[in-house]
C-alpha cells in the first residue's frame, strides 16, 4: 500500500482503471478488507481437476481465444499453502501462454493459507472487484484435490472439470465430489493415446451420476484441437437448478467453516477436547 493512500482511495483508482491499484485492492480483500461494489452479475467460470492434467495450459488456450474476441480476462489461480512453513509455491501462471503480456489479461496467484473456507469467503468479493473494474471473463482455477479447494469453485456460475488420459479410475473424481458440480468436462491431452478411452469412461460415470446434460469434450491445450468447441460450450452453458443447489450448499458449508475457525473460543474448546473434558456434542453447543 502506497504511503498516505487509504484503501478506499486505492479502490477508486482501481475502478478508474489503475491496474496496480486493482492488484492492491485484491490484496486488501484477501487480507480481510471489505468494500462495496455496485451490485452486478459477474461472468465466472471455475476450473478444477486433479494435479497435472493441464488446467493452467488449457486456461491459457481459452485466454487467447477470449482476448481475440475482445474480452478482458482475469484469472485467480489458487494453490495450496505448505502446512509446514505456511509458504507457497505458485506457478500456475507460467503455464498460461499470453498471461504476462496482454493488457486485457490479469492473472493473480493465490495461496490457500491453510484456512479452509477462509479463502473461499474472500473469493466472492474478489470476483465482484474484478467485475467492477471491467473484467468480462473471470476464471477461478483450483486443484480438485480437497474439499476446501473444491468449495472454491462453488463460488462460480459454471464449472469446468479437467481430466486427462491414463489417470486411472474415474471413481477417484467421483469420490472427490467434483463430478456432480461440473457443468462441462474436458479430457485434456487428446494428442496422447488413451484419451478417447478416458472420455468414454467419464461419459459412462456421469451418465449414472449427472444425467445427460453434462457434456464431455476431448481437447488438447498442446495442439489446440477441440478448444474452439469447448469455448463455445462454456459460453452457451446454462446452469441447471440441481447443481445450483449443490453449489449453494458448498458455499454455505464454507461460510460455516470460516465462522467456526474464526470463533474466539475455538482454542479453548480444542484444549478441552484434547484433554477429553468435554464431548464433541458439548463442544459444538459451546461454539454456537
Amino acid at each position: 500500500m502506497a504511503m498516505g493512500l487509504s484503501e478506499s482511495d486505492t479502490m477508486s483508482s482501481a475502478l478508474s482503471g489503475s491496474r496496480r491499484d486493482l492488484s492492491r485492492t485484491l490484496t486488501a480483500i484477501e487480507n480481510g478488507a471489505s468494500f462495496n461494489f455496485t451490485a452486478a452479475d459477474p461472468w465466472t467460470l471455475g476450473v478444477t481437476g486433479p494435479p497435472g492434467v493441464g488446467k493452467s495450459s488449457l486456461i491459457g488456450s481459452l485466454i487467447s481465444k477470449w482476448v481475440d474476441k475482445g474480452e478482458r480476462v482475469a484469472v485467480l489461480a489458487v494453490d495450496p499453502s505448505s502446512p509446514n512453513s505456511g509458504g507457497a509455491l505458485l506457478a500456475d501462471r507460467m503455464r498460461m501462454q499470453a498471461a504476462d503480456s496482454a493488457d486485457s489479461v490479469f492473472v493473480r496467484s493465490l495461496a490457500t493459507r491453510n484456512h479452509p473456507g477462509g479463502l473461499a469467503s474472500r473469493i466472492s468479493p474478489m470476483i465482484d472487484c474484478l467485475h467492477a473494474c471491467g473484467w468480462s471473463r473471470i476464471v477461478i482455477e483450483t486443484v480438485g484435490s480437497g474439499q476446501s479447494e473444491i468449495r472454491i469453485v462453488a463460488f462460480t456460475d459454471r464449472v469446468l472439470l479437467v481430466d486427462g488420459p491414463d489417470r486411472g479410475d474415474v471413481v477417484q473424481a467421483e469420490k472427490a465430489g467434483i463430478l456432480e458440480l461440473a457443468d462441462i468436462i474436458a479430457i485434456n491431452k487428446s494428442d496422447l493415446p488413451n484419451s478417447e478411452q478416458a472420455a468414454d469412461s467419464v461419459r459412462t460415470a456421469i451418465g449414472l451420476a449427472n444425467g445427460p446434460d453434462t457434456s464431455v469434450h476431448l481437447v488438447s491445450a498442446h495442439d489446440g484441437s477441440g478448444v474452439d468447441d469447448l469455448l463455445e460450450e462454456i459460453e452457451s452453458c446454462s446452469v441447471s437448478s440441481g447443481r445450483n443447489r449443490l453449489r449453494a450448499r458448498e458455499r454455505l458449508l464454507s461460510a460455516w467453516d470460516s465462522r467456526l475457525l474464526d470463533h474466539p473460543g475455538l482454542n479453548e474448546v480444542l484444549d478441552s477436547l484434547e484433554t477429553g473434558s468435554i464431548t464433541l456434542d458439548e463442544a459444538v453447543e459451546s461454539l454456537r
Binding site: S85, G87, A88, L90, A91
Partner: peptide, 13 residues
C-alpha cells in the same frame, strides 16, 4: 527455499 521459509513465491517460468 523461500517457500520453505514461509514466503508465497510466484515463479514466472
Amino acid at each position: 527455499a523461500l517457500r520453505d521459509g514461509g514466503h508465497e513465491v510466484v515463479y514466472t517460468g
